[in-house]
Each structure stands twice: as C-alpha cells, then as structure tokens.
Amino acid sequence: MASPGSKIIASVGAGRMGRGIAHAFAYAGYAVRLIDIKARPDADFRRLETEALSEIGASLSFLAEAGVFSADAIPSILSRITLVNAAEAGAALADAHVIFEGVPETEAAKREALAFIDRHAGPEAIVASTTSTFLSTLLAGMTVRPERFLNAHWLNPAYLVPLVEVSPHEGTDPEVTRSLVALLEAVGKVPVVCKASPGYIVPRIQALAMNEAARLVAEGVASAEDIDKAILYGFGVRFSVLGLVEFIDWGGGDILYYASRYMASATGEDRFKAPAAVEENMAAGHIGMKTGKGFYDWSGTDVEAHRKRRIGEFVGLLRHLGQIKSPVL
C-alpha cells in the first residue's frame, strides 16, 4: 500500500457523505479534494466551503473532546482538505487516484456526476459511488470506465462507523476491488464485499428490524422507550460480539427453525417463516457448532476455546458498559 502522501482522494459532492469521507481520509494522512460540481456564485461557494470545513472541524473537535486525540492536531488534519469549485473541478480530478461520488440520490444527479468524472479523471482512477439506493450494475452503465467502477456504501456518520460495504458489478476489474478494499483498511475501515443486491447487507437487515420495531410500537406491545432498551441491552450487545449468522450456529439452526415455525403460526405472518437455507440445513443435519457444520464449517475449530473467547469478549463489552456486577456474598 502506498503511503498517504502519494495518493490523492477526491469526493465529488460536498454534502454530508463527502464531508465524512474527507474527514476519514484526512485523519489518516491523505490529501483530499472535496469537489462541488454545481456552478454557483463565488459568495455561495465560499459559504459552502466555510460550512463544510466547520462541520468537519466540529466532528474532529468532538473526537478530541472524547479523548481520541489531541485537539492540537485539528488544524493539521483540516489543512489536508481542499474545497474545489465547479470551475476548478476538472483539474482537481485529473490526478486523483480514488474518486468517490457522493451527489444526491437521483438518477439525473448520478448521470451528471459520473459523466463529469469520465471527462476529467485519469484512466487509472478508481471511481466508487457511495449510493445507498442505486446498484452498481445500473450505475456501471452510466460510465465509460465500468471496469474501474464499483459502489462503496459508507454508513453514517462516515468518519466514525467502521464498516464500508463494497459492491462491485460483474465487469469490475477484481484488482480494482482489491485496491479499494486495501485502501479502506489502510484508513481504519472494515470493508466487506457483497454482490449488487438491493439494500446491500446492513440496510437490508436494518430495514426489517426497524419496521418490526415500528410494528411493536403500533401494536402496543411495548413503549418505544422499552423497545429501544431491549435493543440496546439485548439485541445490540449480543450482536456486537457475535454476528447474526454465527449466532445461528452458536445456538443451533434448529432453534431458529422451530422459533420461526412458532412465530409464523402464532402471528399468521409469512414474514416470520424460515428461509429455504435454514430448512435445508435442518434436513442435512447441519445445525451449527454442535454438529460441526452450519452456515460455518466448525470441523477444524476448537469450539470450546472459541466459545470461551467469545464469552470473554462479551464480558469485556458488558464491563465497559457498566453492566457487570459483583456477586452477593
């Protein structure tokens, strides 16, 4: 991986996402060009520039106040970020190594931004859309460099959430995907690669969970406050240590299978039915750790040692949250 000083990062779109990306890369030592391709009077651009840098500065100050780093470093970090207006945008893209597209989520805005990038970016530049709406398979048809294009979906706040969902299309050069993943890892992010599928990974699961929470409120099952408390201290802490799929294998896919049958029957709602993958694992006897295979292959794993390690991580998290109490003696 090249050193930060040798790579130039550009973000086309100076809104919330672009600012978060600029923060993340500048913090990691990279020169970042935050590019506004909308033609506007100079006074309006200066207001945008002040607003963007102030917002990034405020985010940095928040982290410094939280003890992440010394506030003395803020001016140095901000100095790596350059706001670029529409008149100078083409020249700013010419030598950028990685270009993130972060314009509003409309097809017209995406087409305009990608066409602008095509006209001005160098032939070896990696172009990544940060869209949460459009699949890479669709956007690839809007660029003349589809082999250099893919999606990179950051979760807000982009400077803080580690995860980035990287979604290439079938025509993306595999080396482009590897290079972007390596770059994201170099700035402290945790990239995952997924196919072009509606909702990627997190938004897809998140939409189901949030809609179910809204239904619980609407049905009067519990108050909004108690539902959120249940998520924070049950769902949240559990799945910050064990991923959803590993948790299926941990408890056993049979538990999910029978729980799903009960919920579908008791509620009369098909949305609670187990998917075919769970039923197929049940039929094959692949129900997780206790059988050596589930969604993961546990045959070469010391399962007991793995369980102890995970429980230790869980205890550490609970201790951090002040939820570990001494026994009454």
Results as ranks from 00 to 15, higher is better:
Ala196Leu: 05
Phe45Glu: 02
Phe116Thr: 02
Ile37Met: 07
Pro104Val: 14
Cys194Met: 13
Tyr257Ile: 02
Val103Trp: 12
Asp254Lys: 12
Ser260Met: 12
Thr291Gln: 05
Ala73Lys: 14
Ser59Ala: 15
Leu150Phe: 02
Leu48Cys: 11
Val202Phe: 08
Ala140Tyr: 00
Val221Ser: 10
Glu88Asp: 14
Val193Arg: 02
Tyr296Trp: 10
Phe100Gly: 08
Glu280Ala: 15
Ile74Met: 02
Phe100Val: 07
Val103Thr: 13
Glu49Ile: 03
Ser3Tyr: 13
Arg271Gly: 11
Val98Leu: 08
Asp42Met: 07
Met17Glu: 02
Pro4Met: 04
Trp250His: 09
Ile324Asp: 03
Ala274Ile: 05
Pro123Arg: 10
Ala43Thr: 12
Ile21Met: 05
Gln323Leu: 15
Thr130Trp: 03
Arg307Asp: 03
Ile9Gln: 01
Pro162Cys: 00
Gly300Asn: 12
Ile37Tyr: 05
Leu34Ala: 09
Lys325Asn: 04
Gly253Leu: 11
Ala86His: 13
Ser70His: 09
Ser136Pro: 11
Arg310Glu: 11
Val103His: 09
Ile324Tyr: 10
Gly253Met: 03
Ser136Phe: 01
Val176Asn: 00
Phe45Thr: 03
Lys195Phe: 08
Arg307Lys: 14
Ser260Asp: 08
Ser59His: 10
Met263Lys: 11
Ile99Leu: 08
Ala125Met: 09
Phe314Val: 04
Ile35Gln: 03
Pro327Gln: 01
Met17Ser: 07
Ala87Ser: 12
Arg310Met: 15
Tyr258Phe: 15
Ile77Tyr: 06
Gly171Ile: 02
Ala66Asn: 14
Ala89Cys: 10
Tyr296Arg: 03
Glu65Met: 10
Leu114Phe: 14
Lys7Tyr: 04
His97Leu: 01
Ala140Val: 00
Tyr296Ile: 01
